[in-house]
Design a protein around this nucleic acid. Structure first.
Lengths: 112, 112
DNA sequence: ACATTAGATGTCTATATAGGAATATGTCAA
DNA sequence: TTGACATATTCCTATATAGACATCTAATGT
């Protein structure tokens, strides 16, 4: 079996670095496709294809105005990723505490 | 160009759902491979291959003991993912606030 | 109507899987 | 040494890209 489709979920969609750049670029405000092409120095068909993946996974919203299409990051859609990673927060803070405690123990020993 | 290797970075590594399951499974405590096989109902070669990807990206640590190998999630390695997603937190909270404010405005109107 | 502009789609190619089956490596126990 | 056990690797196949290039569609201005 090959890898899951990039459109299967947000984890696969954001695995591509260019798509992450696009999401960052479109987070603050909506922009037409041409601005993405110029701003990120990608060629236009490539941007359109990435936007399609992002649209299908709900990571961006699109608004038509004349012949322009304005895209904007849908920040809400990124929450599941954040939530998943957050489950490990307790573990890395534990690890940090252990490191900190060891350092303090060493320091205390050196001061006696 | 094909997709980037799963071992190229953690974004690609965690794009695979089974690997996310494994990381969750190994977060609380270290376990030998056989426990992963039984616990997640995967076949052994598949688990070994996923573990290799996770090892190469630094998402798990491994410890040998006799003929067993104990794996454990390296929570620290997940932080970049969390940090990236966190950059969008301000935007989704803004969106939530707008929704909240609209709801409150409606409620206020109905009470007059 | 016609040329122009913005964006989307199609084609082609090289490459990296994930799964399944078979096999290899390494370690312990009798 | 031999056999059993734990894990890793190899081989095979079908499939899904991402990039480059060409082309198509839709909306606009004159």
């Amino acid at each position: 079996m090959p890898r899951a489709a990039t459109t299967s979920d947000i984890f696969n969609a954001v695995a591509e670095p260019r798509r992450r750049e696009i999401l960052t670029f479109l987070a603050r405000r909506e922009r037409p496709v041409s601005e993405i092409v110029i701003g990120l120095e990608l060629d236009q068909p490539s941007v359109s294809k990435h936007l399609r993946v992002l649209r299908e996974t709900g990571l961006v919203h699109m608004r038509c105005q004349g012949r322009q299409k304005f895209y904007r990051t849908n920040a809400q859609a990124i929450r599941p990723l954040h939530d998943w990673a957050s489950r490990f927060e307790q573990y890395w803070s534990q690890q940090l505490n252990r490191v900190k405690q060891r350092a303090e123990a060493v320091a205390a020993r050196e001061n006696t």
